[in-house]
Design a protein around this nucleic acid. Sequence first.
DNA 1: ATGGTCGGGCTCCGA
Length: 257
Amino acid sequence: MKVATWNVNSVRARAPHLVRWLKEAAPDIALLQELKCVDADFPAMEVETLGYNIAVHGQKTYNGVAILSKRPIEDVLRGLPGDETDEQSRYIEATTGGLRVASIYLPNGNPQPGPKFEYKLGWMGRLARHATSLLAEEMPTVLGGDYNVCPTSDDVWDEKAMAGDALVQPQSRAAWRTILNQGWTDALRLRHPQARLYTYWDYFRDRFTHDHGLRIDHLLLSPQAADRLDEAGVDRTPRGWEKPSDHTPAYVVLREP
DNA sequence: ATGGTCGGGCTCCGA
């Protein structure tokens, strides 16, 4: 069971890449972020033709998340619990293929300090509370997505260049660890303890060419999912295609129970 | 080196 996550940076602009990647990488479950469109504008026909079911939580212009699965999708939760006033489409969760999975687009938080950074930290607190309730279910669970957090200095090409950025702030990293320390496994780091394992390269200054990247897309596994972890990795290929997203897919392979 | 490049949707915002 291959579960992949990818921030596509507009699903309509990236539809040809999405189709090509689904064919070549063939994930059983794909968690997408930054759709930048409402549900009705998701390129459903192209994806369904490849044998995927779709659950979308879209939004005009900004944000938007989706779950694609070759298996039936059930018990869909749209929006992160904990704040009825939050209008941003950054969270979708569902049961598919015997797993509970979430597609997460965590707030960027820049500029910091400021209201956007406060929103990010508040959102992370809500995610931590919800993650606790997910662990209590004792289901194999995968929380994948663009977390907009570089967990350690190993996850940043240059700490000095990024020093003022919300993605590397001590508060962001502490909030990340609060979730991790509940008992979630950072699958990519577990499988690649030493590697510079970037998932994002800024569009400007040829950052991909020079491998000046960040590791901000993560797959967190509940203990029941971590028991089944085979491989984990980053697929850098789509970042090298013409007109790419600034993120590239990351994935885990879980053994059958 | 405080710029640079994208995408969306309209003259600038978010990343």
